[in-house]
Design a protein around this nucleic acid. Structure first.
Lengths: 192, 192
DNA sequence: CCTAAACGTTGTCATATGACAACGTTTTAG
DNA sequence: CTAAAACGTTGTCATATGACAACGTTTAGG
């Protein structure tokens, strides 16, 4: 647990200009949670009120389409932040599920405290805005890649740009991230 | 030209808490440009230094994949803002083109002035952050829709949620936004 | 106003991928 | 440890979509 807070402190050190003392104050707003694989953190149909720092493990954001297939929007490995962002922003019912894809240690801040921190620590707000910008850039890249490339090229793209996903994440989940079925992914891997 | 500035003033009125005087000051940072259809505002390979308000007309953000096909990332109709956002954020060479899809009247602010305005007018910064959040939400939605739906359902989705695109925009450009060829789009429309 | 280019539609054909099933392997829960 | 479930792979078959071409219509530029 203490290690998790240390990782979060380091995350702020590396990504903000906050002083040690301020970092202490900020991280005290987060509460620790250890979850098992498949533990559900945010549900479709509910409004998301939390932001998550992944200290160890991996979270996955996904939705289920009308055919019942999962589509993965985002993975968050250790030392990254995530939420059911669309619902967190709009405060409308989430279409997303956010779940632990591995046993994970999390530090969680609720939305109210998060926005309060913006007042006291503008650097936290700046960090959030950087997160949003990066999330947008990443999402837009996926639109281009997935609209413009065939399956095999999407796979190659992820191999090159997000290789951790292929080693860490189950094929099924990677397939749902690549926009294809697991059997298609399996055949494409055999072709490489 | 004056009408364009009036529209921008109204845009700030409706989307920020700025006073009339502040709005005057902010809009004076923008310069007016009238462009013909197909005029190129931002190019692939160059770093984007501007943000655009569309007073009349329509801009289109797109990239060209390695097969030479266009993929449209975003349309901006009148009274909305746009840029080659990924490059604007990262200040790296753009993969995107930004071009006038109709004859358009634009008000343009350069990046430096834009960020300067953040200091004097925090409401402008807040507006930018709202823009980013919305851009992310929209982009993420496209990822889910385009990964999870077949062509016919993507078309129906746009008919329901962005109907203006289908009346205003050429089929070819809509097809490149939907991630399909123009001939496929044409056949799907015939099927409806 | 006229001509060439771009566009939208429709047809044919090729192909990437989904749906489904079978099967062995791995993981999980009790 | 054991049984059941989930997973990954591979096969077959059906289908949505891309590639390409033909053609009439619309648009843009001189």
């Amino acid at each position: 647990m203490d290690k998790a807070y240390l990782r979060l402190a380091r995350y702020f050190q590396e990504n903000t200009a906050l002083s040690e003392a301020d970092i202490e104050a900020v991280i005290s707003l987060f509460h620790y949670k250890k979850v098992k694989r498949h533990h559900m953190l945010e549900q479709e149909g509910k409004v998301c009120k939390h932001f998550y720092f992944v200290a160890t493990g991996c979270l996955r954001l996904y939705e289920i389409d009308k055919k019942g297939n999962e589509i993965t929007g985002k993975f968050a490995l250790e030392d990254s932040i995530i939420s059911a962002i669309t619902s967190f922003i709009t405060q409308k019912k989430s279409r997303d599920f956010l779940a632990a894809h591995e046993p994970s240690e999390l530090l969680i801040i609720n939305r109210e405290d998060f926005y309060k921190a913006f007042q006291t620590f503008p650097a936290v707000e700046a960090l959030y805005h950087k997160f949003m910008e990066f999330a947008f850039v990443h999402s837009q890249m996926r639109v281009y890649i997935f609209l413009g490339m065939e399956g095999i090229d999407r796979l190659k793209w992820v191999m090159e740009h997000e290789p951790k996903l292929l080693t860490r994440i189950s094929s099924k989940a990677v397939a749902s991230y690549l926009g294809m079925t697991n059997s298609t992914l399996s055949k494409l891997k055999a072709k490489l």
